[in-house]
Design a protein around this nucleic acid. Structure first.
Lengths: 227, 227
DNA sequence: CAAGTGCAAAATGCTGACCGTTTTATTTAT
DNA sequence: ATAAATAAAACGGTCAGCATTTTGCACTTG
């Protein structure tokens, strides 16, 4: 069993990915995409069989998912997909608002022309996807926009923390994007933020970012309460 | 071998700790205490033998240390204790300053009397330890003081992120505490912050916190550069 | 019929042996 | 001394197995 798994020996040895990371990415994606639902049990043996690997890489991937906050471990009982309570959502977004504020401030000071071009094109990509794009594509484009700001801030740790915070609410943000008027609003907000950052108007950009995230908070809260 | 390891069946089943977490805590502490130095290789077999366990819990602990940022994994080469570059330190402290600012704001709004008592007593404990306390005790007391603020902020995610950020620089903060005048300054700053928070003076408390962390940044930078 | 009891099946946590591949260390040759 | 060749060790993962716990389920009982 699982003997069909062979290691990739690519020319560039740098793109070698341990199996545990393949598993990690795979389960992570499944949780973010909603295929694995909150509360669902994640059993080592079942997962191992489904992915054609042994328990070892599954267990190691689980440790990382645990620290990422996507999975909750109960000793001797196993892992389950983490729930996001209303209070959790508020906590996450509160932190994210504070850090996005920092990111914008830093970006306004340090952003290069090349980085601005990237931000602008991310904004345009998002707009272009509105009519035809799938939910996943839209979510990805929205992420790319924010990532462009984070990267321009030039702080690796900030990038990493924001990445993790966004991951927490990814599952629920999809709900937000389902509504037509949310999307239109997002386009407008992206535009305004892009302009504010270009003109290095820190206060304006921060204010817009705050409103942007507050809108998201309300929408997600609403969709959580409905369930 | 290692068959002398038996599971603890305590009356309270809640204090059961998986071996992987024992290992995790143990290695984590060794890194923070400086017993394991930056760049040092962490070899599974050696660690396993030294701790009297098999490779499995070692490997799983390593995954968590990796995500915590205390250990750097290089595929197929193994794990080593993470280095903290000057740029890393700046990044970490920049984020921490932003989040401590948030914590103080929230604490000023929500702090209960009981929480204030805790903060005050943490501040007093620190002061009391100045003459007699060891470096570890002082570091712990300083942590407790900040934790008291974080907890009063009433945001679990904020607490968690700040905890991790502090861990990153713990190793180097010890250097800071070695100097006599740093300690005196810390006592003063703790006092002033406690008072500002008590009188719910957000701006004042935030300003003090900023200065507090900036002092730390300069001192740590200095000690890093000396090496 | 709901609720507890008891038991069998399954899951977790870990050990130990093993194997292919890669990396590191050591020896040997230049 | 430096470089190439070779041996030793480490990583990454599989597999089988074992003690302990948890869970699912049939079965009884009030």
């Amino acid at each position: 069993m699982a003997s069909n798994i062979t290691y990739e020996h690519s020319d560039d040895p740098n793109d070698y990915l341990p199996l545990r990371d393949v598993v990690f990415n795979s389960i992570r994606k499944a949780i973010l995409m909603g295929e694995l639902k909150p509360g669902e049990r994640l059993m080592e043996i079942a997962l191992a069989e489904r992915m054609g690997v042994s328990r070892t890489p599954i267990r190691e991937a689980m440790r990382k998912l645990e620290l990422e906050g996507l999975v909750v471990m109960i000793p001797r009982k196993g892992a389950q997909v983490a729930h996001l309570t209303e209070s959790d959502l508020n906590d996450v977004l509160e932190v994210r608002i504070a850090l996005e504020k920092l990111a914008i401030e830093k970006a306004c000071f340090r952003m290069t022309d090349a980085e601005y071009i990237e931000l602008l094109s991310a904004s345009e990509d998002f707009e272009r996807l509105i009519p035809t794009g799938s939910l996943e594509e839209l979510a990805q484009a929205d992420e790319d926009f924010h990532e462009a700001i984070y990267r321009a801030a030039g702080n690796k740790r900030l990038l990493q923390v924001l990445h993790n915070l966004r991951e927490q609410i990814y599952r629920y943000r999809i709900e937000y994007l389902k509504e037509e008027r949310s999307r239109e609003l997002l386009v407008k907000e992206h535009h305004e933020m892009t302009n504010a950052i270009k003109s290095r108007d820190v206060a304006k950009a921060q204010e817009l970012s705050f409103a942007h995230l507050e809108n998201q908070r309300k929408a997600i809260l609403h969709s959580i309460r409905q369930k």
